[in-house]
Design a protein around this nucleic acid. Structure first.
Lengths: 203, 203, 203, 203
DNA sequence: TATGAATGAGCGTTCATTCAT
DNA sequence: TATGAATGAACGCTCATTCAT
């Protein structure tokens, strides 16, 4: 019996996963283009060339970061959408889920926000466009359903309301840092309060 | 009498101004880093080296684009702030002014949004930090004044409300395109309606 | 038993050292400014960009060439100055050491001669000025000591004599090529004879 | 009667001559390659392109600077050589003439010293090689005649003595600045004393 | 698995030069 | 005579990528 027989007991975050986390952090901080693969390697304690044992290219790192994030996002979103909630409860649950994803994938979200516009046209990143279509259907559909039911205001351009809601939530990724008093649930609660009831005092 | 006799009545946009508009457009579309000076020159119909007759560097183009935008922005903001309006009217006027600036400097705003985080630490762009401090004072002060006067809700974290409002307005630059039905004033009106009164139907 | 069995006995001049020798040769021949890094790379059998694996910049090549030369020069000079020789013997030993350095670092000396005036003001090359001050102290001090002791003529402007001696020796680097009959020791001997006793026939 | 009628009374240094003096000064200070034509134009108070009304190229400025200097040098040298002096007096007169030329054409001499090696191979500057051949004949011949006559030491390699004398005089151009006490004649006198009689005290 | 060394395409920039005005 | 604007070639340098070891 040798050491090789033992199963690793520490959580099996593979080297690859660690490298992706490092890359995501640097991409988020400096932008994808401005990040050199040498910089990623430095922060990972290896030489630039060595990364190519783990990844085909810098672009494939970006690809894996974004698709991993979107996979998790849709796992959460799909669960909400399948739960058969009312339209207001659906919006609340989607917003809460969004802030939870921002909390868990902050770097990936920041990278996504910065880069999707330049990537969406590339064949390799075709899934971004697909995700965005599905995303818009989910949100816009919920808002329109709510407007028809009298839960949401009917006097607003639904597309404008959709963009307002979408941007308002996701831009938070650029500054949101979890701390003692503002966990993702608390941020979500306050955001929902602002978005649904407005900033103006009730008369 | 021929056209040649007339003095040009359209403002004589200098070559430099035209080049800055071209550069801003390309920066906005592809990002500052990803934009090559050869690309800018191509779109301006000249060779890359020729740009250096008009500008010291690629960075100085960016500088001129951003500072021209901020100068105009503050001209508008300062007028609003000096008008002695009530806090709600001030917010309405600032939002309207913001959409007007987005309309007139769409490319510059997009560049600003994408790049300020990487620029704010550079000595040359120190004015960005100064502008941001002044910006926060203006908005946050107005929101707090309104909360104290009972015009805005007092149960919200004012910093969160400030960020919400700020992001919500400026992110619009990334998708807003003026068209027949949605001029900047109309967009501002609808945004204000959402932001102040919320998306939920009134009970 | 083949050649492959023998351990290389020649000192293993590193790639970096070889590249510096190549660079020094090209700098000496064409001047630092007129030398392109592509030219150096060509002569080293690589591409221009590859040089940057070994060096930070063209300027750092120059820096390493000059500081390596000055280090060796001062090793020799310091040994002479510490030997406690008489003033005439000190001059003779310094001249001999100088020609030995010219012989071993001919390219570096030529580069030094051509470029020091443009470099001495740059912070990076501050050590050039320090070296020159120390150099002048060593030579001028020795000449003045010899004049006081009656070994050297006392009717000459010492600063003029210093410059005369300094230039006279080092300019030789621009034409000196070692050959069978004129090794550095022989050149030094004849130079000393001219410098100390003059060209005129003794009456 | 108008101002236009007056004949210029100041010496008619043409614009071209002024520009050449400016160019020579900048070439001497920074080197030919490192000098931009824009810099010359700046110092002359015009734009770079304007220089091309006066000169064909940057190289032609260099050409005119060097050939003007050599013309004057040879006027002086030829007069000395034609005077039928003894060999020692010839050497003394040539040295004195050299320092006079250094005094009057300091910039041109400095440029010559720095650049001749890179120019001598170019067809346009073929006259440099011709001048150098003639120069060597004049000096070497005089030294050899003097050695044969017993005026100069016969135990020295004449070529070495020639180079020693040549370099020793002309390198002075790199540091010589005329002042109250050291005019060209005084410098020449002291140099001749060192060169002919040596630095050592007479026994 | 990782390294050391190199590649090659492309980047921002410089600069001598041209030329219509 | 001089200017303003442009050209085009070349420069120093960067960087994603490759590959023998």
């Amino acid at each position: 019996m040798t050491d090789n027989d033992t199963v690793p007991t520490s959580k099996p975050t593979s080297k690859k996963t660690e490298l992706l986390a490092t890359a995501a952090r640097v991409f988020a901080e400096h932008g994808y283009r401005a990040t050199t693969v040498r910089r990623i390697a430095d922060e990972a304690g290896m030489l630039a060339g060595s990364l190519y044992y783990h990844f085909d290219s810098k672009e494939s790192m970006l690809d894996e970061i974004l698709s991993a994030f979107l996979d998790e996002l849709w796992t959460g979103y799909d669960a909400v959408l399948a739960a058969g909630l009312g339209s207001r409860e659906t919006v609340e649950a989607l917003v809460a889920e969004s802030f939870r994803e921002i909390d868990r994938h902050r770097d990936a979200v920041a990278v996504y926000q910065k880069e999707w516009r330049h990537l969406v046209g590339l064949p390799r990143f075709g899934y971004l466009a697909a995700s965005q279509r599905k995303f818009e259907q989910a949100w816009l559909g919920t808002l329109q359903r709510g407007a028809a039911e009298g839960v949401f205001r009917a006097d607003l351009d639904p597309r404008l309301a959709y963009r307002f809601l979408r941007d308002t939530v996701w831009v938070a990724a650029s500054w949101y840092r979890p701390d003692g008093e503002h966990g993702p649930e608390e941020i979500a609660r306050q955001y929902l309060s602002m978005v649904l009831d407005g900033l103006a005092a009730q008369p």
